[in-house]
């Protein structure tokens, strides 16, 4: 249990008798970047709110740093930083004042403010009213607010929402830096797999309140079985020939035939076989199933 920064045990949560979270067992290892993936409305934000005790979970189902959340709310929140939905910023205060106010609430020295502003690149806009910030600047201020207490665990709800490519790369690098160089555990939610794939060490996929997959990013990759794509002339005959030779055909279009990939040697044998029987093979290559499609498959089939 001590290896997990976050652990939920068969978590169930209802809103007005409607189940939102069903039997969710998250296991977020300490020091990992955990990508929490799911389409909109899957229950990601609800889960994050439960992890912050904003929504009250049934007792003995949610453990943060090995401690039950309802009984250790303040002690746990002291070690957690969060960005939930849109960053919560007071528009009539400047970025600096927003951070000062948070320092005040957390009992931290205000010198931390400048450090945070520099970290997220807002030093120049420090005294500008936060309502005049661009979406990306607000998001960065939100992340600065989450980081100001130097928390061991960061909960980031779609932190790259509304950011331009530069901003997205900055946030990504910041997350990698925090996890690798500062030993932080980060749970980051997203509905974009490509986003998670680049940073996360672990992935959890949720849809309609249910956890459909949980594991390392490599385990997710292994789920996607490689395929062999063959481009060949006289495709109908080739297809017939391959079937008779004992191959199972996964898919067939006007241009190419797809069969499961086994190994390089087998591919070579297959190639020779086709050529020896008078077919012209214009291309033969190994194709990994796109993770994006895999994600769609996992979420659709359940």
């Amino acid at each position: 249990m001590n290896n997990y920064a976050i652990e939920t045990v068969g978590l169930n949560f209802n809103f007005d008798n409607q189940p939102i979270i069903k039997d969710l067992s998250l296991q977020v290892p300490t020091g990992s970047i955990y990508g929490f993936l799911g389409p909109n409305g899957a229950g990601k934000t609800t889960t994050i709110k439960i992890l912050l005790n904003l929504l009250k979970s049934p007792s003995d189902q949610v453990f943060i740093f090995g401690k039950e959340i309802n009984h250790n709310r303040i002690a746990i929140l002291k070690r957690v930083g969060a960005l939930v939905e849109q960053p919560a910023i007071y528009g009539h205060l400047s970025g600096k004042e927003n951070l000062n106010n948070r320092c005040l609430l957390l009992g931290i020295k205000k010198t931390k403010t400048d450090e945070m502003l520099a970290l997220v690149g807002l030093t120049e806009a420090a005294n500008k009213k936060a309502s005049k910030y661009s979406l990306g600047m607000k998001q960065r201020l939100g992340i600065a607010l989450a980081l100001v207490s130097d928390p061991e665990l960061l909960l980031l709800d779609e932190p790259t929402n509304g950011l331009d490519p530069n901003g997205i790369i900055e946030i990504r690098n910041l997350m990698l830096d925090l996890a690798t160089n500062h030993g932080k555990t980060i749970l980051v939610s997203s509905h974009l797999l490509a986003e998670i794939e680049r940073t996360a060490t672990h992935v959890g996929i949720i849809n309609r309140g249910k956890l459909l997959f949980q594991g390392t990013i490599d385990e997710l990759h292994q789920l996607s079985k490689p395929m062999l794509e063959i481009e060949v002339d006289r495709i109908e005959n080739a297809s017939e020939f391959l079937k008779n030779a004992g191959y199972s055909i996964t898919a067939q279009t006007e241009k190419r035939i797809t069969i499961p990939f086994t190994n390089a040697k087998d591919s070579g044998i297959l190639n020779s076989l086709l050529i020896q029987n008078g077919f012209t093979v214009s291309s033969l290559y190994q194709q990994r199933k796109d993770l994006e499609n895999l994600f769609l498959d996992i979420t659709k089939n359940n």
């Binding site: 709110k49 912050l52 005790n53 904003l54 709310r73 303040i74 002690a75 746990i76 929140l77 002291k78 969060a82 939930v84 939905e85 849109q86 919560a88 910023i89 007071y90 609430l105 957390l106 607010l145």
Partner: peptide
């Protein structure tokens, strides 16, 4: 929209 952040403070 800061109620949730306010109540998420330790």
């Amino acid at each position: 929209d800061t109620w949730k952040t306010l109540f998420a403070q330790p």
